[in-house]
Design a protein around this nucleic acid. Structure first.
Lengths: 148, 148
DNA sequence: CCTTTTATTTGTAATTTACAAGTGTTTGTT
DNA sequence: AACAAACACTTGTAAATTACAAATAAAAGG
């Protein structure tokens, strides 16, 4: 069997590199971590700080500071949860939404381009595989539990 | 078509998380970036600074400082290339080799576990898909050129 | 030679990170 | 109701990581 780790290392590195470059939108410079945060707020409905921090595997104090930055950048808004005022709900501003959507679109465009180098059959196989992989990883006991 | 980006985002995040946790070996604490550097030196034969930095998409000055750290940790050795003394060849010390090999083994063990949740057929499909994906990404013009 | 290019390093300063300790809020116990 | 414990989040602080600009040192080109 070939070197499986190498395949994965190459793949994840390529995605990491991509993300690094694709986050300067409309005057706002967004870091890789910040784009991940925006993405999570984008796809969840008013998640709490803890929720997002845990999903991203970030230390909560680090996360707190990142959110402060994003609030200053006017991309994110914090509102206390009425039922439990310890909890902070996160949501995107109009601008934050725009930035998140733009990153999403760029990302999808890139993926489209990548897939354009494949046949229909291959494309479906790859997508099926990624799904399988995600499921299998979520079942693993080694580390990085499900988290979604 | 489903949300392809979401699949990829989840996948790469899971791998990122994994790497974060799997790098404390024999008294040495190795960061994610450092483990990537060790890996590249591990699998290439005496690569130059530039070579590795470019592969990892790192700024050369940042890379230079990381290498300084790894040299201090006695995991990496720098030797000037005789034919061109501007160039620095990188190699692993015995200890560096041990650390890199240990991370590699851990990583492979994790992947084995992940694959154990699949059938033989699925496993082959997934591996084939990752290969396809790497090829397709290397052909993309958007960003992050081949790099290997 | 002497200028230019190339590979790497340092000056500097901002950003990111995380441990420990703190604040404010809710829950549980009596 | 009162108080301790648990919880969600924030700050103090200090180290690690990052990257631009400028410096060094070696090779290549004219």
């Amino acid at each position: 069997m070939e070197n499986v780790r190498e395949l994965f290392q190459t793949m994840t590195r390529r995605f990491g590199l991509l993300n690094k470059n694709c986050c300067q939108i409309g005057g706002k410079e967004v870091s890789l971590v910040q784009s991940h945060i925006l993405y999570e707020i984008f796809r969840n409905d008013k998640p709490s700080m803890q929720q997002v921090a845990e999903t991203l595997g970030m230390d909560i104090t680090t996360f707190s500071r990142q959110i402060q930055t994003l609030v200053k950048m006017e991309l994110v808004v914090k509102t206390p949860l009425p039922e439990d005022r310890r909890v902070t709900q996160l949501s995107l501003t109009t601008q934050g939404n725009y930035v998140a959507a733009k990153i999403d679109a760029d990302m999808n465009q890139y993926l489209d381009e990548v897939f354009s180098n494949m046949s229909e059959f291959e494309r479906e196989m790859v997508i099926k595989s990624i799904k399988l992989l995600n499921e299998a990883m979520s079942k693993s006991t080694v580390c990085c539990k499900p988290l979604i």
